[in-house]
């Protein structure tokens, strides 16, 4: 997404997410949903990259994507 310039945000490994909802409960921005009970989805516009979800995820399949310094786009 082009709006993601230099911003931290959470990324879910969707193939390993168990859809338990632990992340959804701790998200202070309400940025996480589990549509259709398959995997957690992060609204990268709402996400502030605080990392609470990554900390609580029992499968440890959420990580925080960091913006790269000196680059225009934070996405790899």
């Amino acid at each position: 997404m082009t709006l993601q310039k230099n911003k931290r945000y959470a990324v879910v490994d969707e193939t390993h997410c168990v859809a338990c909802g632990s992340c959804m409960k701790v998200c202070p921005k309400g940025a996480i949903t589990i549509p259709c009970g398959i995997t957690a989805e992060i609204d990268t516009l709402k996400c502030v990259g605080c990392g609470l979800c990554a900390k609580v995820c029992p499968a440890s399949v959420i990580h925080i994507e960091m913006p790269k310094r000196g680059e225009e786009n934070g996405n790899e």
């Binding site: 168990v18 859809a19 338990c20 632990s22 259709c36 009970g37 398959i38 609580v56 995820c57 029992p58 499968a59 440890s60």
Partner: peptide, 24 residues
């Protein structure tokens, strides 16, 4: 491990996720 580690291998959780996938 993490507090809700059980959720990772909970048979009910695995089953309901699979049902959701099939339904989707």
């Amino acid at each position: 491990y993490k507090p809700r580690s059980w959720c990772v291998y909970c048979p009910m959780g695995t089953m309901t996720q699979q049902i959701c996938k099939l339904k989707d």
